[in-house]
Simulated scan of single mutants.
Amino acid sequence: MRAGVAPTPPAEGAYFGAWVDPVRHYPPDGSASASPSPTPSPADDDQVTVVRDYERSLGRRLDIAAVYRSWSQEFPRRADADLAAEDRYLLLTWKGADTREIVAGRYDERIRTRARALKELGKPVFLRWHPRMDATSQQEKVHSAADYIAAWRHLREIFRQEGVDNVAWVWCPTSAGFNGGTAHTYYPGDDQVDWIAADIYPGGAYEYRDFSEAAAGFMDWARHRPKPVMISEFGVPRSYGERRAEWLRKAATYLQHPQIKAVVYFDSDKGGRDDSGQPRYEFSLGGDAAALSALREVATAPFFNPRNLPVAASG
């Protein structure tokens, strides 16, 4: 990994990463979870601590550590810098704002400040700006595909003016938007996008559905684009019970696709509802030894370890 250079796809295989929710280790009520480190630590250190714990459970360091930031939140935070300093790529998801206000220049100072801060970080960063922009729930601030594309180009131009060369731009609509939807109309163009991505979840909590079925529409579209693919979030619901490990092993087979160059597991039990109004289900593998063992098999397989990072013997 070279400082100051944007992440590039591995020649073979795919990077493996994860979002590890601090709540998985430090529940809001203070009770201990199934974490190797059940004692709560200072809030600003939680993210680094849980990532390190998670890596011990997988037997290797992550290639990618995912973090999430709101439009108004400052970044990179100390935790972001610490994660990047330990030879991981950051996958920084930055929520959007009103696209027309962005194009009008209302947020130029903020965008320029964030661009300079990422440049100063000097580490490779995946920047996933305003994912799922095609969802119905986003239309009040996205307005239209044309408005979104104009805003994307506005951000990229400011980053270009600031000489930011360590950021790879990740475009990520909804996966459902490729199944008869309009996701493709939000594509800013090959000259504007470095990686194309989608979050792939199997759907209903109780009706078993393979990863391959959930990913089919997106991958059919992606094969016509000369871009590396990132599965920027994926997870298997806890409700699948004993079949979770089976689901992960089958997903790993599908993910060994020559165009897929990065995969990121979403280890969280967020709750709430997704963009289609359906309940979000529990994807954390905490407390599920069989499923965690299956994910460890994925993470330590040569295909998903293209940097040949050291792998610890399973305990």
Results as ranks from 00 to 15, higher is better:
Ala3Arg: 14
Pro7Ile: 03
Pro9Met: 01
Gly13Asn: 06
Ala14Lys: 03
Ala14Gln: 01
Phe16Ser: 02
Gly17Thr: 04
Ala18Val: 08
Ala18Ile: 06
Val23Glu: 10
His25Lys: 06
Tyr26Ala: 10
Pro27Ser: 11
Pro27Ile: 00
Asp29Gln: 13
Ser31Gly: 11
Ser33Phe: 05
Ser35Ile: 06
Pro36Asn: 00
Pro36Leu: 11
Ser41Glu: 13
Asp44Arg: 08
Gln47Thr: 02
Val50Pro: 07
Val51Arg: 12
Glu55Arg: 05
Arg56Asp: 15
Arg56Pro: 05
Leu58Lys: 05
Arg61Cys: 10
Ala65Leu: 09
Ala65Cys: 15
Ala66Leu: 14
Val67Leu: 03
Trp71Phe: 14
Gln73Ile: 04
Gln73Cys: 04
Glu74Ser: 07
Arg78Gln: 14
Asp82Ser: 13
Leu83Asn: 06
Asp87Met: 01
Arg88Pro: 06
Tyr89Gln: 02
Leu92Thr: 10
Leu92Trp: 06
Gly105Ile: 09
Arg106Thr: 13
Arg106Ala: 15
Tyr107Cys: 00
Arg110Ile: 01
Ile111Phe: 12
Arg112Asn: 13
Thr113Glu: 15
Ala117Ser: 15
Ala117Lys: 09
Pro124Arg: 01
Phe126Asn: 10
Leu127Asn: 08
Pro131Lys: 07
Val142Arg: 09
Asp147Gln: 03
Ala150Arg: 06
Arg153Lys: 13
Arg156Val: 02
Phe159Trp: 13
Phe159Ala: 12
Gln161Phe: 04
Val164Met: 10
Val167Arg: 05
Ala168Ser: 15
Trp169Ala: 10
Val170Thr: 02
Ala176Thr: 10
Ala183Met: 08
His184Val: 01
Thr185Met: 00
Tyr187Leu: 03
Pro188Ala: 00
Gly189Leu: 09
Gln192Met: 14
Ala197Pro: 14
Ala198Tyr: 11
Ile200Gln: 09
Glu213Ala: 14
Ala216Lys: 14
Gly217Asp: 13
Phe218Cys: 03
Ala222Gly: 04
His224Trp: 12
Arg225His: 15
Lys227Ala: 07
Ser232Glu: 14
Glu233Leu: 06
Phe234Ala: 06
Phe234Pro: 02
Pro237Phe: 09
Arg244Leu: 04
Ala245Cys: 12
Trp247Ile: 11
Trp247Met: 08
Lys250Tyr: 04
Ala251Thr: 00
Tyr254Ala: 12
Leu255Phe: 05
Pro258Thr: 00
Gln259Asp: 12
Gln259Tyr: 04
Gln259Met: 00
Gln259Cys: 01
Ile260Asn: 03
Val264Gly: 02
Tyr265Glu: 02
Phe266Tyr: 15
Gly272Val: 03
Gly277Arg: 01
Pro279Val: 00
Pro279Asn: 00
Glu282Asn: 14
Ser284Asn: 09
Gly286Ala: 07
Gly287Pro: 15
Asp288Gln: 04
Ala290Gly: 10
Ala290Leu: 13
Ala290Arg: 12
Leu292Met: 15
Leu292Lys: 08
Ala294Cys: 11
Leu295Ser: 03
Leu295Gln: 01
Val298Ala: 14
Pro302His: 08
Phe303Trp: 15
Asn308Cys: 10
Asn308Tyr: 08
Val311Arg: 07
